[in-house]
């Protein structure tokens, strides 16, 4: 009998703390598969953020450091500069990155830091308890926008993949999602490409992943998956916003 599917060996036996229907578990697994397939585990350093993935250091048999709120790209800058041969994975959520960490991610992009950013966008503060993030959609109800997000008080959602892709020193920026098997495969390909570029010493590689948060959105997991197609991708279109590897071919 041949094995057609197995858990990545890089995972520990620790039980993941993510809610049912959350996208983080899928994304964590894709990263685990890729670093294993590409033989990169020994070179990997994770920089975890504050938020739902704050415990992710416990899930992998690889080096990791957890940064404070929004600071992961700054910690990553110091770390990657000190260990340029390593695969440095800066993993951030939308509350962490786009609010408190906006300066850090923007300037990491402006400098073209040679690490990979995995940006998990679920349009809400998950771990803190369902508050508005800068990526929260218009009219979306959260605990701090109980009447729906309104432009007049909060402005509009922030499209990071486009903004980062526009920076000259960004090498690669793509937005993907994990709401279907096909999209999960595309997400895996995007992350794999980002890691490849990093190991080639290219500038910043940025993968934004639209991720379901049924708990925060207060919907059933199936509805969350559908909501990504129906609503979230309208604000945050999927696609490649920068791929200098393609342009240079």
């Amino acid at each position: 009998m041949s094995i057609v599917y197995k858990r990545p060996e890089v995972f520990t036996d620790v039980y993941m703390k993510y809610c049912g229907g959350c996208g983080h578990g899928i994304i964590n697994k894709l990263i685990g598969e890729i670093i294993e397939e590409e033989n990169l585990v020994d070179k990997t350093v994770f920089i975890w953020p504050i938020g739902c993935s704050v415990y992710a250091d416990k899930y992998y048999k690889a080096d990791s450091i957890c940064a404070l709120h929004g600071r992961a790209p700054a910690v990553g800058t110091g770390l990657k500069r000190a260990c340029p041969e390593d695969l440095v994975i800066v993993y951030q959520g939308d509350g962490d990155m786009v609010s408190e960490g906006m300066a850090e991610i923007m300037h990491a992009g402006i400098r073209g830091e040679k690490f990979t950013v995995i940006f998990v966008n679920n349009a809400i503060y998950g771990m803190t308890g369902g508050q508005m993030a800068p990526t929260t959609l218009m009219e979306q109800v959260t605990t701090t926008t109980p009447y729906g997000r309104a432009e007049v008080n909060t402005g509009n959602p922030v499209n990071m993949a486009e903004i980062i892709g526009n920076l000259p020193e960004c090498y690669y920026s793509e937005r993907v999602t994990v709401n279907s098997p096909a999209n999960i495969r595309k997400t895996k390909a995007a992350i794999k490409k980002a890691f490849k570029y990093q190991m080639e010493g290219k500038g910043l590689s940025f993968v934004e992943i639209l991720s379901p948060c049924p708990t925060g959105w207060k919907v059933k997991p199936v509805q969350a998956i559908k909501w990504i197609d129906d609503v979230v991708t309208k604000q945050f279109p999927l696609g490649v916003f920068k791929d200098r590897g393609q342009e240079e071919k």
Binding site: I65, L68, V75, G78, L79, R81, A82, A103, E104, H107
Partner: peptide, 26 residues
């Protein structure tokens, strides 16, 4: 040497944390 003019002191301190985590002097 590696010298970076950081965007804020917040970032500069955290960049130092990143180097210190590797056991190198920053």
């Amino acid at each position: 040497l590696t010298f970076i003019q950081a965007e804020t002191e917040v970032s500069a301190f955290n960049m130092v944390a990143g180097v210190a985590a590797t056991g190198k002097r920053g």
